[in-house]
Computed example of a mutant assay.
Amino acid sequence: MGGKPQKKPFPWHIPVFLAPAVLIYTLVMILPLAETLRLSFFQRDAVSQATSYVGFANYARLFFDPFWGGPFFNALGNNLYFFVIHMLVQNPIGILIAALLSMTHLPGKKFYRTAIFLPTLLSFVVVGFVWKLMLSPLWGVSKDMMSSVGLGHLFMPFLGKEETALTTLSLISVWQFVGIPMMLIYAALLSIPDEVIEAAECDGVTGLSQFFKIKLPLILPTVGIISILTFVGNFNAFDLIYTTQGPLAGPNFSTDLLGTILYRTFYGQQTQPGDPNMGAAIATVMFFIILAGVAVYLFVIQRKLTRYEM
């Protein structure tokens, strides 16, 4: 006679182990995000200091009021440019360096790997201050270094001109963080089974042809992860701009990013009083921009990469 199947006891150890992480994540991420969203639906009167619910009025001002919309869309365009520079310069260079470091008989690989990754560990303040000194027309060494190789006539105040400031800062950021895609791609290349490489060599696929036909398709998921990390990091960028150009993101707001306009709006700057409600609206828009980018990667790009792997 078969008895009733015994009911499995509830696995209490799972919520017990998850509770600390969930609690910390809720306190650090969920509650501040909810409070930011709540703040964006209110406005405080400058005279009476009374707070009133205004719905989506702050977002309407942000998008359609010239006083807010002009600086916001300028910062958004600069952020997109900042991201494109990293995608077109940082990540390809990182892949190239990783491919070179993965060569079997390359001497000094450990030294090169450490030297290239080292700037990633430096503080934004140190990086910004050092590059600002180097590029200074008054006491910087860049002019003499360019003159020593016959390029002195190309020197200009790169951080002081609207046409070159943002590009210069983008390349400084590339220099600092190129070690991250390099290390991720390097690890992905090392994880490719030796049997696959040996089979390709037996078929006569070597050199650049082997990299583009065999290795690159196998590391595409890692390339996708690097791309989304670059997107999230660039749309949260603030420190380097603040360190080198100040909160006004000069010259003439040409290096203004969403992070710097959020800082000025929330806390105020010089004659501009702080407006936490408009700052919360900008922060919420930034959150949804990043969320949209991550969603596109997870539900569109990653699925295609997974099918490609299979």
Rank of each mutant, 00 (worst) to 15 (best):
S173H: 11
I219L: 07
M146F: 08
L159A: 07
L88Q: 05
L166S: 03
I241R: 04
T271A: 10
D45M: 01
L133Q: 15
D45Q: 01
I241M: 13
F82N: 01
L100P: 13
F158K: 08
V223R: 08
I24G: 00
G207C: 13
I95Q: 00
Y267Q: 05
L166T: 07
V174R: 04
I180E: 07
L229A: 09
F64W: 14
L154F: 08
E163C: 02
G250V: 08
F67S: 09
Q90S: 07
R264N: 06
A187C: 08
L39Q: 15
T164R: 07
K132F: 12
F56G: 08
N74G: 10
G246Y: 04
L23W: 09
A21Q: 11
S173M: 13
K4H: 10
F111Q: 08
F83Y: 14
S191A: 14
V196K: 00
L189E: 02
A115R: 11
V127D: 01
K132D: 04
F73T: 14
Y25S: 15
T244K: 03
Y25C: 15
K213E: 04
Y242S: 10
I225G: 11
M286T: 12
D203L: 13
I93Y: 04
A115F: 13
P66I: 04
L118F: 14
F73G: 15
Y308A: 10
E195D: 08
T114E: 02
R264S: 03
I261V: 14
V285M: 09
S209I: 12
G128L: 11
F299Y: 06
H86N: 14
G77W: 02
R38H: 10
W68D: 01
I228K: 03
L208C: 14
